[in-house]
């Protein structure tokens, strides 16, 4: 499997993703945002961080970079694209995913471990998890409050396009277990064809026993399936 991780000024989770991918024998390339050519990749990762210092809106400037034109073309051709945290914000700003990520409802930057529940495993990203499995992952963001219009929200709910929702340790999904105010406790969404995933939690931070649990690892294993 070949993967590409896109790097912007201000990315800070790019190397973490690369380490997780290389651990699983992905042949990974780091691609600088100014490049105009994207190597042939089975998976493209838009990593977390603070591209361009979150100027204007998180992800808005990165969404206009050279390499994003190639990422958009690859996404439309059906390549697998994973946007994590700031990567999710960038995928929304460039139009590959719909909706918006607003400032957290509590107005605070949140950096902590949270729980998410797998809503659907019939896809390329979560097939190594069981349905309703509860994972402990880390979030670290200021704008993770997913919002969209009613029509799109229904489309997401009705077509199995919300693979993960925030919950507590027991799997309860409600306002109390919603860290950032996201509509319907949404932690990540797919595009219509389920080849593009945007998620706020960081699976790459939970991929090695020496520093965390390994709840994020099956996501990368799923992609190889």
């Amino acid at each position: 499997m070949k993967s590409s991780v896109i790097v912007f000024p201000g990315s800070n989770c790019d190397r973490d993703v690369a380490v997780a991918l290389e651990k699983l024998q992905f042949k990974n390339s780091m691609i600088w945002h100014k490049e105009n050519v994207l190597p042939k990749s089975d998976l493209i990762v838009v990593p977390g961080g603070f591209s361009y210092g979150d100027y204007l809106r998180s992800g808005a400037i990165a969404a206009k970079s050279n390499i994003l034109n190639e990422v958009i073309k690859a996404g439309e051709r059906g390549s697998l694209i994973l946007g994590i945290c700031n990567g999710f914000q960038i995928l929304i700003e460039c139009g590959l995913l719909k909706g918006a990520l607003l400032r957290n409802s509590g107005l605070k930057f949140i950096s902590k471990n949270i729980f998410i529940k797998i809503q659907s495993n019939k896809n390329k990203f979560f097939n190594k998890y069981k349905k309703n499995e509860i994972l402990e992952l880390n979030i670290a963001h200021n704008e993770g409050n997913f919002f969209t219009d009613k029509k799109h929200l229904n489309e997401l709910e009705d077509n199995d396009l919300i693979p993960i929702k925030y919950c507590d340790k027991e799997g309860n999904i409600n306002q109390k277990t919603n860290p950032n105010g996201s509509i319907n406790n949404i932690a990540g969404i797919f595009n219509k064809n389920k080849n593009i995933l945007g998620m706020m939690p960081h699976p790459e931070r939970m991929a090695d026993k020496t520093c965390s649990n390994e709840d994020g690892l099956p996501l990368f294993l799923s992609l190889m399936n």
Binding site: R57, L102, D149
Partner: peptide
């Protein structure tokens, strides 16, 4: 194209 996110 850039300054406004017309969804919100």
């Amino acid at each position: 194209k850039l300054l406004v996110n017309q969804i919100i």
